[in-house]
Amino acid sequence: MSRRGGRHLLQKLISAPYIVWSVIFVVFPLFMVIYYTFTDGNGKFTMSNLAELGTSENVSVMMISIAIALIATVACLVVGYPLAYLISKMSNSGRNAMMLLMMLPMWVNFVIRTNAIYILTEALGFSETYTAAVVGMVYNFLPYMVLPIYSAISKLDNSLFEAAYDLGCTKFAVLRKVLFPLSMPGVVSGITMVFVPSISTFYISQKLGGGMFATVGDKIEGLFMLTNNYNLGSAFSIILLVLIIISMAIMSKFTTDDDEGGLLL
């Protein structure tokens, strides 16, 4: 056996654990989801599950999910971008303190965290509303917006800003003409990382929205856990997957291929 062949075998052996893992836990389940989507309760082929997604009730569930996810993403951007910029301008100790402050809530259990926000929204008088659900999402997903933007900004050499200033830009124009365009890769990746979990979340919207409305995630949970309708649930899950793939494809148009922005693509 040649050396090259030997190395080939070694490479295969190294990747074997993951291949086994992904066949069992990634590929096979995905096929099951597709199988359920296109069959009825008796295992017969049908398109009725997909057709049922078109009912006005289900369409509105999807629309609400998309709308809430979009609003949460925009809110994260509005709060997160200036924060990321400020952190990048801080001294080392200040930066570490801000990072800790931002990450600390992430280390608290998810259920406790969400319940705590529920109590807070109650105290502030807007519990069980769309607003409360959006606040919950922003709270949970803000770090995923801040970190990629921060990393994009901190990579920019300070002399780029000075050069723009030197060439006649006002301080505001420096932000507009240098900072914003050059931090776009971070923004794109932040948007992706917030939008994807936002659109598929279920507990946050259920708990904080107080059952006033249902998102796709809530709907899927209900179909699987309460009514045992795996077929319609799978159809919802497939459509969610398609939605996410489409939105990521759109986002990737905004960044050049070689940038580290497309973290998830």
Binding site: S159, A163, D166, L167, K177, V178
Partner: peptide, 26 residues
């Protein structure tokens, strides 16, 4: 105007737009 040690050219703009930068600002 300053020539910076590391040039500080704008990586998102091509040569033409880099040279035109200050003129566009004006």
């Amino acid at each position: 105007n300053t020539i910076f040690q590391k040039y500080a050219l704008f990586p998102n703009l091509n040569v033409y737009e880099n040279v035109a930068f200050g003129l566009r600002v004006k």
